[in-house]
Amino acid sequence: MTTDEILEKTKSFLAQFINVNVADDEELFASGLVNSLFAMQLVLFIEKEFSIKVENEDLDYDNFRTLNAIVGFIEKKI
């Protein structure tokens, strides 16, 4: 899967939860754009869509803080 495909899939997932257009490097959690349920929804999305497992050792905000970070994390795990 290409980086662009991962980016598009992740963008359309985020669009379900965030009403504004999010820049690729915009902070998702610190900006309060998402609620407390979003963290687990994001984990489930990554696991189901890309058939990877988000593990204990992956819990690092640098893996999830922006759209770019999420895409980079997924690429690393695939």
Partner: peptide, 17 residues
């Protein structure tokens, strides 16, 4: 369990679901 800072969003989040 998990990492520091992930206790509510992820660990409690999974448990509460």
């Amino acid at each position: 369990v998990g990492k520091v800072g992930f206790g509510f969003s992820h660990v409690a989040g999974a448990a509460l679901d």
